Amino acid sequence: MATIRLTNVQKSYGDHPPVIRRVNLEIAQHEFCVFLGPSGCGKSTLLRMIAGLEDLSEGELHIGGRLVNDVPAAARGVAMVFQSYALFPHMTVFDNMAFGLKLAKQPKDVIDRKVREAARILQLDAFLDRYPKA
């Protein structure tokens, strides 16, 4: 995990007014950050810009001290989980949570430790062996 810093970040679509206006934010390494707001306020757009799925119209985005405005999403080392029900129904909660770490070829003991710690924080410990439909 690395520090994320947004400086005067803005997002506009065409000639329309900005949907994200001059965001200045620093999320320190190991810090937990949550974006809350009503539908359409720009939460997903901001996350998509950090992940590299949307271009910034203005401003700078640094991850780990590196300017990443022009770095492709796949090279940023960032992932996001969408709010919509995008879980694999044939996999347990544990396996769904571990999926990204498995793709990153993390050792099994690291995956187990990280998934169980995240589950503890989210109070999902009791559900790790269940399937999403349950």
Rank of each mutant, 00 (worst) to 15 (best):
V78W: 08
A75D: 15
E117T: 05
G42N: 09
S39Y: 09
A86C: 10
I121M: 14
A75W: 00
H90V: 03
R120T: 04
D95A: 05
M49L: 07
T7I: 14
L128K: 01
A86D: 11
E26A: 07
V81D: 10
P17L: 12
I4H: 11
A119R: 00
K11H: 13
K108F: 01
S39T: 08
I111M: 05
A104H: 09
P38L: 11
A75Y: 02
L47K: 07
G40T: 08
N96G: 03
K102Q: 13
V93M: 10
K105N: 13
P18C: 03
A73L: 03
A74I: 04
S39L: 05
P18M: 05
R76K: 04
R76N: 06
L6P: 14
R120W: 01
R22N: 15
Q10P: 06
R116K: 13
P89I: 00
M1K: 09
Y131R: 03
A98L: 04
G37N: 06
A28I: 04
S44I: 08
N96M: 03
V71I: 13
L6D: 14
D55E: 12
T45C: 01
E60C: 06
C33V: 14
R130G: 00
D125R: 00
A98D: 13
K105L: 02
K102V: 03
A28H: 14
R66M: 03
H16F: 12
G42M: 09
T92G: 05
E54Y: 07
S57Q: 09
E54H: 06
E60K: 10
K43H: 11
D129E: 12
N24M: 07
R22Y: 14
I50L: 08
V115R: 04
E60I: 05
I4M: 06
A79L: 06
G52N: 06
D112C: 00
R22M: 12
